[in-house]
Design a protein around this nucleic acid. Structure first.
Lengths: 345, 345
DNA sequence: TGTTAGCACTCTTTTTCTTTGAGTGCTAAT
DNA sequence: ATTAGCACTCAAAGAAAAAGAGTGCTAACA
């Protein structure tokens, strides 16, 4: 049985959620009746609230208390009831300033936004960068730095770099080093990070002939570098903002932080729309009493990452959602190839 | 007036501190009297405790409570009274396993110890690596990675590497790149990190002649890399272990974390012995109710870094101090040049 | 003289009981 | 359909009482 809410009930539900987000206290009928755009008496509101409770949108902590929203209540509020604020020019400037455009890689740009957003919202923020998935290896370099010490350097098409120090059992001859560089250029340049796994490396090692024994450890290093690009995808900022709150169980937060890679990975995959709000047990999100707003960043039509805010359930969604949308849109603009071309002209 | 404590009072003080560290509750005379090696009555202990309070080693939260140690009490306990546990073979193995010896640089070795120690003690740990101070630049490399994109790479004699992505206004010619490499090799190889500052860079820029305009931004990048080596000295682990405790003011912790570079730098300089316990306002340490145990790591007789544990005042000093000593001794062994030579034979 | 049993006293903690007040649901009137 | 009125509920706040841990002091004791 689907009961459609009439306009007044929708208004009341919205008002309850608004008030609860603002104060954190259960909301009573009197407080709602006092609002300027509500023209009915507390008694009427009480009846409506009882109905809204029956439908599962509100609940009472105890008999003689006001109502607080349930997860369904929040869901309806976010999907249909709240009216997202439109950003003022000042806010736009503020958000523009969050973006450090001087930074050389898309990753760093997104991270600057993440950091600023954590400050701005007093929440934790999360970044998932899926650029590595789409990027290919542009360069693998081997640099001798001391006796039997070498630095392996890997550069990707997305402009990211990682290095790794390798200590070998023997010093390499110039000829070996040259072979390695050539071999890497021939076999790995243009290879997608995603495709580079243990098997690929094994095949490359086998095909190395006489150099196999000496150079195999370096190939191992190359493999680890690539793994690093895959693993290092999820970054948090502002963790302490969450730890400080006492309406959220700090054990759950710590657990979430520690398992972030496993947990968040599923949550941010391609299966949802451009912006989504997760809470309760949505997509395996498991911090009670808190929610996560995630918005996608695109590059040339494909998802290139996402930026999210993690905070208590009673977030100012009407403000933060437009913030997040604006930021991810701007980032999408900046990193799109069109724009890059503009810059390069 | 210096009053020397007789043996019994020293025993009692030690017992109070021990008990307080264990339970976190004020300690009464009865509890002390119940200990096997104390053969006097609670009344006697009360008299002694009153004396110890007068001397400033103990204090009472309120009239009808037991005693807790003051800072002076802790100090005396740590310096003279506690008996540090000797490590069992199991503990030694445990600690040996904390050290990731496969890691290529001393920095990474120390950091592995820091991480493990944080787990082991449920405290935060701090690492100050002063190796950069003593290390010199062994290599500066410039690697083109895309249109107008270059990676600057700096390697130091301590085996540390940092890179930085630079986006230039123009593409460089091969000749320019070669000049830059040669110029760096001639002018920066062997230069101490400490000596490389803005002035040095300015001088190098001025002396570059025709290349000045094009290559100046790269020199700027080199300067920033060197700064990175200097700044990046202090690293924390296990911050959340402290945040979770409610006997420590979390605002103070956050402030400490944020100012760690300024604050800790002074604290870990060369002016103290091999191992030191700081609390109260010792050396500018400012987290109430907590203490920091720091132990030095040496290389060839010179201080190469330090490793510390930050936790509540009521730490198990008798256990943690030997842990820390053992770890820093082992690290000192491993990174000493003698040992390196062994490896290289 | 140092040690100890005994005891009155202090002050926190815990428990119990009472009061207060916000908010509800229901009924009857509009 | 809405609303005023009212009895009822229940958490929170406050007050009072009881419990308990620990002390300092005194006087006795070895």
């Amino acid at each position: 049985m689907i009961v459609l809410l009439d306009e007044r009930k929708r208004r009341i539900l919205a008002a309850v959620v608004d008030a609860y987000i603002l104060t954190g206290e259960p909301v009573g009928s009197k407080a709602i009746a006092a609002l300027p755009d509500i023209r009915v008496s507390p008694a009427t509101i009480r009846n409506d609230m009882a109905m809204l409770e029956q439908l599962g949108y509100l609940e009472q902590p105890h008999t003689s208390a006001g109502r607080i929203p349930t997860y369904s209540g929040y869901r309806l509020y976010i999907d249909e009831l709240m009216n997202a604020k439109t950003l003022s020019d000042e806010e736009k400037t503020l958000l523009d300033n969050c973006l450090d455009v001087d930074v050389p890689t898309a990753d760093a740009l997104i991270e600057s936004a993440s950091k600023a957003l954590a400050e701005l919202t007093h929440c934790a923020t999360v970044v998932k960068n899926v650029a590595p998935k789409f990027s290919v290896i542009t360069k693998v370099e081997l640099i001798p730095t001391g006796r039997r010490m070498y630095v392996l350097l890997m550069v990707t098409s997305s402009g990211n770099i990682k290095n790794k120090v390798c200590r070998l059992e023997f010093d390499l001859t110039n000829e070996q080093i040259e072979f390695f560089s050539r071999y890497m250029a021939e076999n790995l340049q243009g290879v997608s990070i995603e495709d580079l796994d243990g098997d690929t490396i094994d095949r490359l090692v086998s095909a190395m002939g006489a150099y196999m024994v000496t150079l195999a450890p370096l190939l191992q290093g190359v493999c680890e570098l690539a793994e690093g690009f895959k693993d290092n995808e999820i970054k948090l900022q502002g963790e302490k903002n969450l730890l400080a709150r006492q309406d959220i169980n700090s054990d759950q937060i710590v657990e979430f932080f520690e398992n972030r890679n496993k947990v968040v990975k599923n949550m941010l995959d391609d299966s949802f729309g451009d912006l989504q709000v997760l809470f309760g047990e949505d997509g395996g999100f498991i911090i009670e009493n808190s929610s996560m707003i995630v918005s996608k960043i695109k590059k040339d039509g494909k998802t290139a990452g996402s930026l999210g805010v993690i905070g208590p359930m009673r977030l100012d969604y009407a403000k933060i959602i437009p913030y997040l949308e604006y930021l991810t849109d701007r980032i999408t603009d900046i990193i799109s190839d069109d724009n890059e071309d503009d810059k390069n002209n």
